[in-house]
Design a protein around this nucleic acid. Sequence first.
DNA 1: TAGTGGTCTAGACCACTGG
DNA 2: CAGTGGTCTAGACCACTAG
Lengths: 238, 238
Amino acid sequence: MPKYEEIANTLRQRIKKGVYPANTLLPNQIDLVQEFGASRMTVKKAITILTMEGLVLARRGAGTKILDHSFWNKAAMPANQYDGMAADIARLGKTLTSEIIQFEVVFPTPEIQEYLMLADQEPVYEIIRLRIIDGVNTTLEHTYMPVTRAPGLTDDVLKHSVYNYLKETLHLTFAGAFRNIQADKSDEYDQKYLDCAPTDPVLEVEQVIYLDNGEPIEYSRSRNRYDRRSYTYLDVKS
Amino acid sequence: MPKYEEIANTLRQRIKKGVYPANTLLPNQIDLVQEFGASRMTVKKAITILTMEGLVLARRGAGTKILDHSFWNKAAMPANQYDGMAADIARLGKTLTSEIIQFEVVFPTPEIQEYLMLADQEPVYEIIRLRIIDGVNTTLEHTYMPVTRAPGLTDDVLKHSVYNYLKETLHLTFAGAFRNIQADKSDEYDQKYLDCAPTDPVLEVEQVIYLDNGEPIEYSRSRNRYDRRSYTYLDVKS
DNA sequence: TAGTGGTCTAGACCACTGG
DNA sequence: CAGTGGTCTAGACCACTAG
């Protein structure tokens, strides 16, 4: 782990434990340089990480202030990092189970082929899963993954965490994702599986997830019960 | 403007103009150092900006690849930077007009007071505007702004761009925003102003916008016609 | 193994904030 | 004005990729 990440981790812990209370200033960068035995550029990089996380605000001439956003406590999905739904749910102290509705191998439509940047006739997994949080049907997830990039998927993997399988077994790492979020009317499938009324809307999240070599590993469309899921994210300038 | 931003701008233009075609490699950092007369750390910072924008992918040992996401072309809102709705709409070549439904000064509720980090009895503007894109009622926007932090708001400002007023006249700059996105059933007001059916859902975006000194400048709740607006964003690791 | 990007340093100058 | 963070350099070492 790079030194700037270690410094960021240490500072983050101190902020969360109240060693540096909210609305006070962080020690200045020169002091941190001495404490951590690092150069100023390295300390600055650590502070940039905390800035992007919304934990501190650094201003030239005025020091680095610890921020407090504790009130922003909606039971919402932090949309900024992809760890898979299993990890997100676990973080909230809830339980996630999955019911496999469909699991097949098909040739992709031209649209899916383009999203996944595939050559012709490259087979993809087509997966439909119902995600159940604390016993409540919450998300209907329609996923396409190229067989060649994610070989060896099984019912067992799908029932637990695909993310963990890709990471731990296939040793793949993620570079990021594109997402599109919109509201929609519920259709028959939503009503059947999400157990919602015909007049209930759904929150649809489309995403393409990329590996660290730039190849797409997944295209998915998730339809969420409107009263069970929302997405939050933090947008920090520069 | 810092040198790394100028370099990033130059490289971005070359990518968009096809000087560096998609799926080829950027010149290596040493060459860029020589071309721009900068140090490698500075060049690296420029490349980091392009990485965060999803334009390139840099990999140790393999070079920096130009990416192609041209297919991701939904007429959606890029949710990653706040320039005000006027600027976003203009970027898409559409026209935005605004109808003021309410414009008052009130004492905030405890909830609003907390979102805006205000002392007791600090007055706030309460603004309701209907945003009309290309002649179609699209967004119903309910905004609260502290009077002391955004003094001098007028009907005229509200009809055009509040963002421009804050930036150009009051010389305020933004640090970022917290957002929460969810679907909801439309209520009477939505149906009246957004001209939608009782069964139509809405996409609700809540946000708190912060100034570069850490003070919140706005809390707002926007309700969008589900068939007219969606939000996209890019999520890049590290 | 050659070439790439990632990290790190020690020091410098500057822009900005706030008393 | 003193003190802060933002930028920049020149060079170094290393981890990684790909032929």
